[in-house]
């Protein structure tokens, strides 16, 4: 077994190197296909991040009544402190609320100037963890409404509708194009490999005629296909990484008014492995298909 693996690898590597000019064709194809696949994943991932970032900005406000007691306030605070889903929360007293309004809307300071009483309620401003489901917001709201001293619990439900639609769209488009990209890459790659291996039909025939057994003919070809797939996919991932660096550079150098302060994220390691696997897999398919034709159709063993 070890001898067989040694044989297959050494023959495959020698052959990859000897026919490198021809191999550039299949390598380039694999690289291109995996670059497309990788870029696609990269864009999808970051759109999703963008959606999550928007969601993080959703404010969850608990407006308190004028008559709230110290204990009631402490109870709410304790509850918020214990909750697993809450990222941060701050208490905003009536005065702070008014001050903030004045700061934010300095142009309208005439509006509040004349007012003797402070009309702004005290409140808790809560931010939930990134990616928290809408259901959690609802549950939280329901639970809080059993507490005393609360006037109203409010968050923008509309945003969820829009985000949900956006995320659903990304996901659907992701599946749709992802499947298309994966299948067409595998198809293209295995066809190109078949084409390049086809030029070696004569070699396979000779091996058969001088008495090499089937496994020893197949082994190197299969390893060669897999190695080619892996190499091409690695080059494709490297290209995506280069693209990521370029995007990163562009975003840090420019005002990022639409994207907020989003930092693009590179593909997680599992996805990189997925791409490498797709490359290797299509290489494997390509060599298997062509071998099937060589071995079974031409100078036969039958």
């Amino acid at each position: 077994m070890l001898q067989f693996l040694y044989f297959s690898f050494s023959e495959a590597i020698t052959s990859l190197w000897r026919t490198r000019i021809l191999n550039l064709l299949s390598l380039g194809t694999i690289m291109f296909a995996m670059f497309i696949l990788g870029s696609f994943m990269f864009v999808g991932l970051n759109l999703q991040n963008l959606a999550l970032d928007w969601q993080k900005q959703i404010q969850f406000n608990i407006f308190l009544t004028e008559e709230i007691t110290e204990e009631e306030r402490a109870e709410i605070q304790a509850y918020l402190g214990k909750s697993f889903f809450i990222d941060t929360f701050t208490y905003l007293s009536k005065d702070q609320a008014r001050m903030r309004f004045d700061e934010k809307f300095a142009a309208y300071d005439k509006v509040t100037e004349g007012l003797e009483d402070n009309p702004f309620p005290a409140s808790f401003e809560v931010f939930l963890l990134r990616g928290t489901k809408q259901q959690t917001y609802t549950t939280l709201k329901d639970e809080l409404s059993t507490f005393g001293g609360i006037e109203e619990v409010y968050y923008d439900e509309e945003i969820f509708k829009r985000l949900g639609m956006f995320a659903g769209f990304i996901q659907m488009a992701g599946w749709f194009f992802g499947v298309i990209v994966i299948f067409s890459s595998i198809f293209t790659i295995s066809n190109v490999l078949k084409l390049t291996f086809f030029t070696r039909r004569e070699e396979v025939d000779i091996m058969k005629l001088v008495g090499a057994s089937r496994a020893y003919i197949r082994g190197p070809f299969i390893i060669e296909g897999v190695l080619q797939g892996l190499l091409g996919a690695s080059a494709g991932v490297a290209l995506v990484y280069a693209g990521y660096l370029a995007v990163n550079h562009f975003l840090t150098g420019n005002a990022t008014f639409i994207l907020g302060n989003l930092e693009p994220e590179f593909l997680p390691l599992q996805w990189v492995f997925l791409i490498l696997f797709a490359g290797a897999f299509s290489g494997l398919l390509g060599s298997l298909f062509s071998l099937h034709q060589f071995l079974e159709e031409h100078i036969s063993y039958h």
Partner: peptide, 24 residues
């Protein structure tokens, strides 16, 4: 049987009319 063919061929040394050398 098909899987015995390689062994048969290995027991025979063949000089082919067109040589059949592997080019690479």
């Amino acid at each position: 049987p098909v899987n015995k063919i390689p062994r048969l061929r290995r027991s025979i040394g063949v000089v082919f009319q067109d040589f059949k050398l592997i080019r690479n």
